[in-house]
Amino acid sequence: MNNNAELEQSDRGYPTGMVLWLLRAEALAVFAASISLFFFLGGEFWVLAVLFFAPDLSFVGYVVGKKAGAALYNAVHSYALPAVLAIAGVLTGLTILWHVALIFVAHAAFDRSLGYGLKYAAGFRHTHLGPIGNPPSAAAAFAQQGDV
């Protein structure tokens, strides 16, 4: 099942190898299912187009700091908020709440399928799916520590 390279990488604190690809494929399936359900429930394309990237407005939290940015980003990009919206939609009969919930699920799943996971307070590029982007150069990493 696992090759030696995967076993050597398994202690990194985030998924690697086939586990990472399985999580990304799973997210892609959730994305496809939520978009399909959105349209099945009568969702309009223009609503999807307007709201799909709305969760990314949570990046504004990083203006306050890494910890606040990660907390706000994670609150908006987890599946908990859409679950609450969906329950509210069922209880109130407001279809728009279902639609927004499905759009937010689709967005979070889309991000995860691309490798953008929930954030750690260490910084934007540190996610539960592993680091994103190019690692900083040695000089930049040194400067970020406040030693320069």
Rank of each mutant, 00 (worst) to 15 (best):
L23R: 14
L129G: 01
H128M: 03
D56K: 07
L81K: 00
V19D: 15
L41W: 11
A54D: 02
L118K: 11
I35L: 15
V105P: 01
V63R: 13
R24D: 09
A88F: 06
Y79I: 05
V90K: 06
V47P: 01
A109V: 06
G89Q: 07
I132M: 11
A25G: 15
G146W: 08
R125I: 00
V105A: 11
V60Y: 11
Y79W: 10
L57W: 13
Y14S: 02
A54Y: 07
G130A: 00
W21T: 13
D11L: 11
G17M: 02
A68L: 06
E44G: 04
L28N: 06
A54G: 00
E6K: 00
S34T: 15
I35Y: 03
F59R: 10
G89P: 05
L94N: 13
D11F: 12
F124K: 03
R24L: 10
A71H: 09
G42V: 03
A141N: 10
L28H: 04
E26M: 07
W98Q: 07
L72W: 11
A86S: 13
F124R: 04
Q144I: 00
Y116C: 03
A71M: 14
Q9A: 15
I35T: 14
G61A: 08
L41K: 11
A83Y: 04
G133V: 05
H128D: 15
I35W: 09
P135E: 15
S34Y: 07
W46P: 00
L97W: 07
S137D: 08
S36R: 10
T16H: 09
A27G: 05
G42A: 05
L102M: 14
Q145H: 07
F40H: 15
K67T: 13
T16N: 11
A29W: 08
I87Y: 11
N2E: 09
F52W: 09
A49Q: 12
P136Y: 02
T92H: 01
F110G: 08
R12S: 13
F40Y: 15
P135V: 10
I35C: 13
A138H: 09
G89H: 08
L129M: 04
